[in-house]
């Protein structure tokens, strides 16, 4: 394999791709001290192991990587070797600058041809998973090689092709992440994990695509499985959780109705009130009054 490092600002190959901060491949045949200290950047870093065995420290976790494995480091996470040096072996990598929104969600930039909702979902899944290592993802290695080939050969259409390949890389990494946390055997368990995730972020405006992605399923199969297992559509199941959390909060005197509405994921107190009344027959304030003077 060819060894090289392209860096934004230094390498003309990257001029048309401001979002590629660094792209490289390296065959490390000797250990050099202090060659690989821990660092954090504001890019997404993807490292693919071609050969060798690496012991890395990703976001506070020690990880062992073998050939075919990928290390995924999110913006702000620390990454490197605790011993400070890079072990013998070969690897390829890419650092991608990722647009960061105010609410902490990540989305790829304008270069990407992913739709808005798909890139939101990908961002959400990447953020939710913090395992750092994706095992046996040879496809990632191949894509990195293709990107390198496109950049060096610059054949017609290479600009589009490079960006498509980066999209593809993000997609296969996201799919692997969800598959890795769900081996597609135990639906009740996957559903239980989903419920926990929903409850931890109840104020988030969950879409079915995001929920399906968390359990590693396509939306069609997801809808069918959830309906079959829970008796509700995914969105109606989520409404159940929202209303039951809201009931708990209504029974405490010190939280305003607007706060309850927003905390439990309704768009507004109006939306909360309508949904609540439709289901229970009470408006939230009637329900609260009724329960405080109950006995």
């Amino acid at each position: 394999m060819n060894q090289f490092v392209l860096q934004q600002g230094h390498s003309p190959e990257l001029e048309l791709f401001p979002h590629i901060v660094e792209l490289g491949a390296k065959k490390n045949s000797a250990i050099q001290l202090n060659s690989f200290p821990e660092s954090a950047t504001d890019t997404i870093r993807i490292y693919y192991v071609n050969d060798g065995k690496f012991e890395w420290h990703i976001h506070g976790h020690s990880c062992l990587l073998y050939p075919g494995d990928v290390a995924l480091i999110l913006p702000g996470q620390s990454f490197g070797s605790q011993k400070g040096f890079l072990e013998i072996g070969s690897l390829s990598w890419m650092h991608i600058a990722i647009g960061k929104l105010d609410n902490g969600k990540m989305v790829p930039g304008k270069w990407s041809s992913l739709s808005e909702s798909e890139s939101m979902t990908i961002g959400k899944i990447l953020l939710l998973n913090n395992s750092g290592v994706l095992s046996k993802l040879n496809e990632a290695g191949r894509i990195l090689q293709y990107i390198q080939g496109e950049l060096f050969n610059q054949q017609i259409g290479y600009c589009t092709r490079v960006n498509q390949l980066i999209d593809e890389l993000l997609i296969i990494i996201t799919r692997q992440l969800t598959r890795q946390s769900n081996p597609a055997r135990d639906f009740p368990k996957a559903f239980m994990q989903l419920e926990q995730t929903l409850r931890q972020n109840l104020s988030h405006q969950w879409t079915v695509e995001e929920m399906a992605a968390i359990v590693g399923m396509g939306t069609t199969l997801f809808n069918e499985k959830v309906k079959n297992y829970s008796g509700f559509s995914p969105i109606n199941y989520l409404i159940n959780i929202r209303i039951s959390e809201a009931i708990k909060l209504l029974k405490k005197e010190d939280i305003s109705l607007t706060d309850i509405a927003l905390d439990t994921g309704f768009y507004s107190s109006q939306h909360f009130s309508t949904t609540f009344k439709k289901l229970t027959g009470y408006t939230p304030s009637e329900f609260r009054k009724n329960h405080l003077r109950n006995n």
Partner: peptide, 15 residues
């Protein structure tokens, strides 16, 4: 189990 979730689920299904 969350008693409010059981209650609201029961109500929703019955309805």
């Amino acid at each position: 189990q969350d008693p409010e979730q059981i209650f609201i689920t029961m109500l929703y299904v019955l309805k």
